[in-house]
Nucleic acid binder design. Structure first.
Length: 161
DNA sequence: GCCAACGTTGGC
DNA sequence: GCCAACGTTGGC
């Protein structure tokens, strides 16, 4: 099984939006490295951290699961879409997407600043300088540690209520 | 809003 | 195929 982190700007699409939709096509990815992950490596059943970027509380917000593996992203064929790519065609698609299903919203976001302070988290692209990938693989051990940190926060937060 | 870092484009 | 210019990303 694979482990991933998908970035999203919560103003555009947040973990709450995913919770409401339950299932969502993750489209609009227009970066070749991220595209290759979506097309070739992201599989049904893989677990995905939903990460909020470019906002007040930057960090891991929730958990999702891949429910459909890579297939062509239709928005590339739609001249009305802001993701339209005139060089792509249905015969020769350039861009791919996967569908993700909602699993969990953490009671508290695990902030990027906290992730950077976790001594066991060394390989994650987020903590490296100049990372700009919107889809990145997460090492299995690191994923487990991050998930434990998210759920520990959640447990204490819900215990306080 | 700033600015560093990165990916992409396009001229040669 | 190189590389400068440009646009975008994303944390702060």
């Amino acid at each position: 099984m694979g482990y991933w982190l998908f970035k999203s700007e919560p103003d555009a699409f947040s973990i709450d939006d995913l919770a409401a939709a339950q299932t969502e096509p993750w489209d609009g990815i227009r970066n070749y490295q991220a595209r290759n992950f979506l097309r070739d490596e992201v599989k049904v059943g893989d677990l995905v951290f939903i990460y909020h970027s470019s906002c007040k509380h930057v960090g891991i917000a929730g958990l999702a699961e891949v429910v459909k593996a890579g297939y062509p992203d239709d928005s590339q064929f739609d001249p009305e879409s802001k993701y339209y790519d005139p060089k792509a065609s249905p015969d020769n698609p350039r861009w791919y997407r996967v569908d993700v299903g909602f699993k969990q919203k953490f009671a508290q976001i695990l902030p990027l600043s906290a992730i950077k302070q976790m001594p066991d988290i060394q390989q994650l692209g987020l903590v490296k300088k100049g990372h700009r990938l919107s889809i990145m693989p997460v090492d299995e051990k690191e994923f487990a540690r991050l998930l434990a940190a998210c759920q520990a926060d959640g447990a204490s937060a819900s215990a306080e209520v």
